[in-house]
Amino acid sequence: MWWKILGAAIFMYVLIGGLLTPLNPGITAVSPSKTGTGEDLILSVTGYNTHFTTAKNHRAWLKLDSIHAVPAENISILNENTAELRFLIPGTLPDNEELAAATLILDNEMDGSFVQPSALFIQNSQTQNPASDREWQQYIIKDLSVRKSMGFPYRNILNETIRNTFFHVALWFAMFLLLIAGIYYAIRYLRTQDIVFDHYSSAFNKVAILYGILGLITGSVWAKFTWNTFWTTDVKLNMTAVAMLIYLAYLVLRGSSADQDKRARLSAAYSIFAFVALIPLVFVIPRLTDSLHPGNGGNPALGGEDLDNT
């Protein structure tokens, strides 16, 4: 009985934690998006979940690479989520590049530090501005503030939908645990011919198939809001759909035979083969090619949130 209460408690914890944990501050829009060298630039920044008016110590940088950066001359706060930053862009780009992408870094004591990668493109302008004698200084950004409370990491495009990692991703984890339990009892059935193990195995597999189908549907909804389509030709999507079809055939197989022992033996053997097919379909093939899913095709998941960032 205790595990029923534990299940309900974990479910409530996930719901509450997934919905009430705040999203970390981030930058949604920067305008203008490109400028020339030597310009006196006013950059208007729109943030999300930021506390510009509440926080006191604001700092901002445009970062070119690991050694070149320029701090903001002046930061004027318009409201909690918008600010205007004034930058004096140096006259020439380092190494005489024609075009460079600069990362915008904002920092205050309440929100910690947050970035917008490739926020501003700086083009080498041919016109000689009076300010063009300014050079890119070797500027090391240090003493960044850290946000105190826990939050979901802010990612562009993902925004609040990053909360779906609590629901969509957890479904697949649960599906795999249930399938492992299912295959364990399938093997035990084949060894002992005890029909109780067949009941266990089929019950685990059926719930796992339910979770798999729900995972496909929820992933499809998530894709609509982040990849802008319900279904892409992403390898992981197609391969998972194939794996789910293999498992749907398991249900058909169980429904096709009236003889209990025959059905149990057939479905136990089939579920072992289906599980063996599932592993390369879901875990191996998407990692060999490009995939939109994080963690596949050399695509980092949330590795940037690691302490050592490896």
């Binding site: 999300y48 609040e160 939908t161 909360r163 779906n164 479904l171 339910l210 189908i213 909804v221 998530w222």
Partner: peptide, 17 residues
């Protein structure tokens, strides 16, 4: 911030279960 897509996902999950 697209929070309602999360609501749809939770509702689908809830309905399915």
């Amino acid at each position: 911030g697209k929070i309602y897509s999360v609501v749809i996902v939770i509702c689908i999950l809830f309905l399915g279960i």
